[in-house]
């Protein structure tokens, strides 16, 4: 069996709150699996149950074809959403500390090179910038040369340049044949990195598939955007998704749609036409009042 990781009917309850509500999926070897969802959707809770950090209320996690256990930690690399590191240790000392925990480790120089840690190896780990810190945390996740890597929002808080650098890094890891499970809020990130995506909302998986599949499934043609004020109080003969100051119309026939709008005396100032991306899908699935 090629599924490196699979979960069945996973549930996590905190008192009356059900953070994860019976989800199942599996991740094949060599894949990059993306867990997407708005804040509080249950991504971190799910990923921590997969890592074996927290116990599911019910359901099963299988790692490497076996029920998850501490044994699996040797083969798993984990980057938490945010973590403190031991104070007063330099980057090099932190790497050494974590390397000591594992029987098999990746060559240190290779790791330093891969994550570009060279320029601050001897700096106190607390004094790193957000992006440098993120690279160190990733290095710690990779230190045991894991087969499976969990990344919980690895690029949150990074500048666009650092994010792109980080993506390259993740792609380099992928090329080494690692399986990656990552959570993110950034659709462009998921689109770039992930082969397979699950969108979560309120503890459930609301969509599942490759980025292209998802878009095909939910969008036909293109999207026409208008300022919300332009359609205020008008009745129009098609479905619209209203999102704050913007109205979104999905259409396969742009010409006809624009003509209909003009006929309805809608001002076309500010009209945009674009092809849908995962951002649009995300909003469609997890957000905001739909109206006919």
């Amino acid at each position: 069996m090629t599924d490196l990781l699979s979960i069945h009917n996973l549930v996590k309850r905190y008192k009356q709150l059900t953070a994860v509500d019976g989800i199942s999926f599996s991740v094949a070897k060599g894949q990059c699996f993306g867990l997407l969802g708005p804040n509080g959707a249950g991504k971190t809770t799910t990923i921590e149950m997969m890592e074996g950090i927290s116990k599911p209320t019910s359901g099963e996690v299988r790692l490497f074809g076996e029920p998850a256990s501490r044994k699996a930690f040797e083969r798993v690399g984990i980057q938490f959403q945010n973590t403190a590191l031991q104070d007063y240790l330099t980057v090099a000392e932190t790497l050494k500390l974590f390397a000591a925990f594992y029987t098999k480790t990746i060559d240190r120089d290779e790791l330093v090179e891969l994550c570009s840690l060279g320029e601050f190896l001897n700096r106190d780990a607390r004094k790193l910038s957000g992006g440098q810190r993120q690279r160190l945390l990733l290095a710690l996740a990779l230190i045991n040369d894991p087969d499976l890597v969990f990344l919980d929002e690895p690029t949150t808080g990074l500048d666009p340049q650092s994010r792109r650098n980080f993506w390259e890094l993740v792609q380099a890891i992928k090329r080494r044949g690692k399986t990656i499970v990552l959570t993110t809020h950034y659709m462009d990130e998921a689109e770039t990195l992930c082969d397979d995506i699950a969108i979560m909302d309120q503890g459930r998986i609301v969509e599942r598939g490759s980025p292209a599949q998802l878009l095909d499934r939910h969008f036909e043609g293109v999207m026409v955007h208008l300022p919300a004020s332009a359609v205020d109080g008008k009745t129009l003969p098609f479905d619209m998704l209203i999102n704050r100051e913007r109205v979104e119309i999905q259409t396969t026939a742009v010409d006809a749609t624009v003509r209909q709008l003009a006929d309805a005396q809608v001002s076309l100032t500010g009209l945009q036409v674009k092809s849908p991306n995962l951002d649009d899908l995300f909003l469609k699935l997890t957000g905001h009042a739909l109206r006919a």
Binding site: E51, I53, R70, F73, E74, V76, I78, F80, N82, T83, A84, L85, Q86, F98, F101, Y102, T103, L140, N144
Partner: peptide
């Protein structure tokens, strides 16, 4: 360590 997550990070290793 428990509060700031160092312990949790260590728990995620074979330690």
């Amino acid at each position: 360590y428990r509060k700031n997550g160092v312990l949790k990070r260590l728990k995620a290793t074979p330690l």
